[in-house]
Every structure is written in C-alpha cells, then in structure tokens.
Design a protein around this nucleic acid. Structure first.
Lengths: 255, 255
DNA sequence: CGCCTTCTTGAAGGATCTCAAGAAGGGTGG
DNA sequence: CCACCCTTCTTGAGATCCTTCAAGAAGGCG
C-alpha cells in the first residue's frame, strides 16, 4: 500500500515546507516514506499510555485528541489534531507515550514507521530540523492551552479554542464568514477546555445568542470572525501559520 | 568570558546525556559553546514577546518562569525552569518568542548564541537529535500542566506541581524526607496553577496542617514524600528522569 | 528603624459543578 | 419509510469551590 500514499504524505510535506526550507531530495524523502493507512472509529484509542510505539501517526481525515485522565476518571484533552498533522511526531525521539491518542470522530490515520523517519532524519539534517520545528509549533499551541485553561473564563476560553481550530482548519480566508466541518461533541469540547459538558452547552448558547457561533451537526459557522477573535482574545501568531518564505529558517547548509 | 563557562555548560551537557547518547566530540562541542553569563533580578523579564532573539538562555541559578498574560492582565506561568534547563532551546528553530521569560527569583543565566548552536547542530546530527528530545521533555511537562490546571482541584494541583518541582530539583533520593531551596512566592505559584494568591495560601495551609508540606522563606520541605505523590496523583514518568543508559536512543550513526 | 513585599485572615459574591431528567438528533433494522 | 435505540444536547435547581475585596500581620532588607 505504501505506493498509494504519496498524496497523503504530500499534506505532511506541505505542512513542513510551510515553515522550513527543504531541497528536492529532502522533499522526495518525505514522499517516499512507507506508510499504512488505517480507519479508526470515533472514541477509539489508537495509541495507549506506556506501550512503546514504533510508528508515528499522520492524521488524514477526522479529528484526533491527545488526552490523559485523572485518578477519578476525569478526562483532559491536551491537544487536538487535524488533517495534515503528524500527531505524535515526538514519538520518534521519545517512543514511550506519556499520553494517549484517540479519534474524536471517525478518522483515517497513516502509520509511518519510526525506522524510516529516523533514517531520513539521520541522512538529511534539514529534515530533522524541520521535524523539530514542527514539534515546537505543537508545543507553542499547548503553551497557549495552559493560558486558556488557567486564566480565561468559560466564554473566552471556548471562543479562543474555536478561533484556534478554525484557523488551523484553514477556514479563515475572507476574514468575515467562516464555515468548517468540525465533528467534535460538546462533551469532547468540555474535556479540551477543562469544563463540564453542561457548562459548555450553556456557554455555547451564550455565544450563539450573541450571534458569534453557530454549530450544528458537526458544522461550525462563525459569522463574525473579527468579533469572535476579539471576544476570545485570539492572536494567531503562535500558530506560525503565515511564515513568509524568506523568513523560513534553515540551520544546516543545503547540500 | 567564554572560557570560564565550561562548568556551567557541563550542567547542560549532563542534562543532554541523561537522555541521549553523545560521542566525545559531540560532548566537547557543547562544552566549547561560547556563552555570556548574566545576572537577572527577581521579577525581571529577560526575553520579551515578539522581539526576535539571537541566543538561547541556560539557567545557572534561580528559577525562571515562562509566562503570558490575558487582556485583563491576569498572568499565567506556563513553565518553570531550574538550574541546568536551557529554557528556550526551542528559540533555535523558532526565534520569535510566543511567550516571555522572567526570573522568578534572582537568577543567573548563560546566554548562548543561536549561531553557535546552529553550527554544531548542523555538524553533528546527534546533537540536533538531543536538542529536539530535550525540547520534547519540556513539551511533555507542559502537557501535564494542561491536565493539572484543567482537571485537578486546588489541593491536588498544588501537590502535583510541588512533586514535579521537587523531582526535577533532584531532591528525591531517600524517598522519604525531601528538602530543597525553592524560592518562589505564593503569588507566582498561583500564576503557575491558574489560581489566585489567596486561594493558594489557604490551600497551602491545608497541606501544611495535613503534614504534607512545609514551606518557609524559600525552603520547601516535604516530610512524607510517598503520601504527597499519592495526594497529588503524581507519576514522574513524564519527566524522563530515570532513562537507563541502554534505553537511550540515538537516531544517527555514531561517526 | 522603616519600608515594601509577602503572607494571612474574614466575609460575601459568583462562576462553575453536580445531579437529574427530558428533548432532539442520527443511525440501524425491519 | 417508519420504529427504535443510543448518543448528544438541553434545561432546572441547588451545592461548592474558588474569587474578590479589604485590611492587618509578618518577614526581609537597607
């Protein structure tokens, strides 16, 4: 099946080249990675705590959550991953996961063996650098989540997360009216924001009556983007989404 | 001054080799890094938001906080760094900080130019790998903070953070009685846990009367370590502190 | 000794949670 | 195409954890 995955790997490559500078050879190395597609049902774990893994997971479709739970069984989602995210790239250098991965909706993932990633990372230092950088964007997002959960009230917190996800889903183009598939339940949203499902429901209603959010059957509609980012204190710079080509960094010499 | 910093850089090297396998040459490259020591007063920022930086900061002494603040001026500390931490190693691949750095107590830091780090990362892929891995441990810690702030009540949350810091400070040896310098104010602790200073104070009193924590004038004393880690739901595995030599990973071939 | 930061305490208010139950929605089988 | 079921969404009322405001006590430092 490896030969049929180039178009999926292209999404990963696009992600990398949006922030890093890669030569043709390096790009080909990405596209030639062996990979095995897999369908995962909603609410199913596909990476479990403590079980050493030997492959990284690229999200092709659906939404994936990284999560942990407390002794009393309360869940906390610490990251959400969407199409194009290599959601546990970090496992290449740290193969024993400290948190689990679950499909939040029906998802298809592409498993890429660590061995192959390690080989090209060793051969092309610029790829290792690009991988490192990609992981640091995920870390910057998690950093923002700590602020969100720690210091913002429910309304702002929810608005902020919706802004982040809409931006990452690439939905913000005309700057006004934003529509995107976002198949996440209110309960999952609660686990991502450190709230209860009941309170997420009520808060969402407040956002709805304020005319800022419509969200029915997995489709998210944000009619007044500018108003929502102000409401959610959202500043997208941490997402490193708009890095201009001339600003992209390359540590190692192109060879 | 560069020549006199080898002993400080040794701390950084020790940190790297505790998780990664490095050859003699690679180790020397770390120790030969140029570096400039600097004293920073308590509550003083030394890396500001949005200002592109050209050096990474190694903490030699004191405690450093990574933080952000909301529109209303509420502060959230998203990471604490101690002696031996290269607190913004990520800036090597992402030179525009998305969060600021502040000395929580009087600190001395060692500034290491990005250029020098990039040079050795390009020349020795195993060093790039070690840097990447080190950043991923910081990310794992932040991941745990999301859980802590999102899903644990004040008592558990504080206990968990104290357990983490005590472990990282290397204070847990005999497994019973733990004593360490920890010059952090209750107000800073509040900003790290997403609570108010008042509530941190009351919660700390509860831990004190439970006999789990004594903390006076910057000295932290945890008389019943085993009881405290149970109380704080603390499992140190995410810190990657006890990685045995034979479990340390090296992607690239030793040359 | 005096000043400024940090710690401590009280009382009242509010945001969020818990418990409980009913309504709506989406899928499946007959 | 309808009936059924299970998940998700919605609503209400009461409880609680944590915050806010305010002020005094203690601690460190010149």
């Amino acid at each position: 099946m490896a030969h049929s995955n180039r178009s999926d790997l292209q999404r990963f490559l696009d992600r990398l080249t949006s922030r890093s500078v890669l030569t043709d050879k390096e790009q080909q190395a990405i596209l030639n990675l062996p990979a095995y597609a897999e369908q995962v049902g909603a609410n199913r774990d596909f990476v479990r705590l403590g079980e050493r893994v030997d492959h990284a997971c690229l999200v092709i479709a659906g939404i994936v959550g990284r999560f942990e739970q407390t002794r009393e069984g309360m869940r906390q989602i610490t990251a959400m991953h969407i199409s194009g995210d290599m959601c546990d790239l970090h496992s290449v250098v740290q193969p024993v996961p400290t948190s689990a991965l679950q499909a939040l909706s029906v998802s298809t993932i592409l498993r890429v063996p660590h061995g192959a990633i390690r080989t090209i990372a060793g051969r092309y230092p610029a790829l290792a650098e690009a991988f490192w950088r990609d992981c640091m964007v995920d870390a910057a997002i998690m950093n923002e989540w700590v602020v969100n959960v720690g210091r913002r009230d429910a309304r702002t917190r929810l608005a902020h997360l919706l802004c982040e996800m809409a931006t990452r889903l690439g939905a913000v183009t005309n700057g006004k009216d934003v529509v995107r598939d976002f198949p996440v339940t209110q309960s999952q949203m609660a686990n991502a924001t450190g709230l209860t499902a009941v309170h997420v429901n009520r808060t969402l209603q407040a956002l709805r009556t304020a005319g800022l959010v419509e969200w029915r059957s997995g489709v998210l509609h944000l009619p007044h983007w500018d108003a929502l980012i102000a409401y959610g204190e959202f500043d997208s710079s941490y997402l490193q989404a708009g890095v201009k080509p001339e600003q992209r960094l390359r540590i190692v010499q192109a060879s």
